[in-house]
Design a protein around this nucleic acid. Structure first.
Lengths: 192, 192
DNA sequence: GTAATTATTTATCTTATGATAAATACTTCC
DNA sequence: GGAAGTATTTATCATAAGATAAATAATTAC
């Protein structure tokens, strides 16, 4: 029997590939459910990322400091994963932090243990390959959006694609995600 | 014996993982060496990407049209791969094209055949997982560079990291890669 | 429920980049 | 090697977004 707290994680996995029961059991063993209060850093800047998180409830963001200014790299919502891949895949300390924006329940998957399971379970390696390929595609598409649309176009696209962000996340975090200052975002919002 | 034209490809692979001889042989079978003249489109816009290319000689770029204007997404040089991942991994037609900028010798790897080999050769699946993870990390890092540095900073960083680009690629292609117009790039270059 | 803190908006002025046009430099091809 | 085509630079003017400061609104903590 699968831990009821892990059901949504395995539903998420099914969007990418099917796992055998043994594989599900093996993954279950390296999952830890944790709850975190909002406005806390789940992982600080400078920490080497050894965890892939799945969000059962809440919102998280990845951010870093550029010349002391807080910059949001990405947001993650319910039923999605979040990880600092540039650290996870290189083993180097991350310049980025993961912060919880709404009281959250997360599933933490230890990446050392996960990667070790790849030899025994090629199906798990495949699953995470597919998840990461999809995330890679999202990132490639994001470059296009950042580089070749105006701030106003990007704001409107975000409102359309993910209205939840605007409702649930402070605008100051959204501004840097869009690549502009908070003042500029406010100006764009005021324009009608 | 490995076809001498494929040696650099297998050297490239060794940077990520070791392959058994059978696996190398299997990959060799789905590789095709091709030569292409400069200024030709290797794959046109609208085509569904079914090939991963390795560059033995020459330069390629991925570009697309935004409101009729040519935008460079990326460049690839000798001893690297190039593919339109957003099509390769989704099976959807790409809005992007691959163009050859200098007379080139390429190794074309058929992705349908490659992906089919993953069941028989988990080591090949692993190899390409690692290659794509590294490419994903590069892309994440590129977002940071596009979004939070000025055009001038980006130009100087490019000169430092990859002076070859400036020497071998027409500036008009570099400008859109940096996210600015050619006129702006010319202005930045003239500033000192 | 009020004070203190934090978030958002508004205003002003500055600046980097865009758009357009024209001048110059460089390539290619017969 | 000269004409035609292409690439790059320079100039001018317009505009989106940045920086700073101050005003207002919303949230949080006691």
């Amino acid at each position: 029997m699968i831990d009821p707290e892990l059901i949504s994680l395995f539903e998420f996995f099914k969007r990418y590939s099917r796992l055998s029961e043994e594989a599900e059991k093996a993954i279950s063993k390296i999952c830890k459910v944790i709850t975190i209060k909002r406005n806390t850093d789940l992982q600080p800047i400078g920490h080497t990322c050894k965890t892939i998180y799945f969000i059962n409830k809440g919102i998280a963001r990845i951010y870093y400091l550029k010349d002391g200014v807080d910059i949001t790299e990405s947001f993650s919502f319910e039923n999605n994963i979040i990880a600092r891949v540039e650290s996870l895949f290189t083993g180097k300390p991350s310049r980025k932090a993961i912060q919880i924006l709404e009281d959250a329940e997360l599933i933490a998957i230890n990446s050392d243990l996960l990667f070790k399971m790849y030899d025994q379970f090629p199906e798990i390696e495949r699953l995470f390959r597919l998840i990461m390929e999809a995330a890679y595609v999202d990132t490639v598409n994001r470059i296009e959006s950042i580089q070749f649309y105006t701030a106003e176009e990007r704001y409107k696209a975000l409102m359309k694609e993910n209205p939840d962000v605007i409702k649930r996340v402070p605008l100051k975090y959204i501004a840097s995600y869009l690549g502009i200052t908070q003042v500029s975002l406010s100006r764009i919002r005021g324009m009608k």
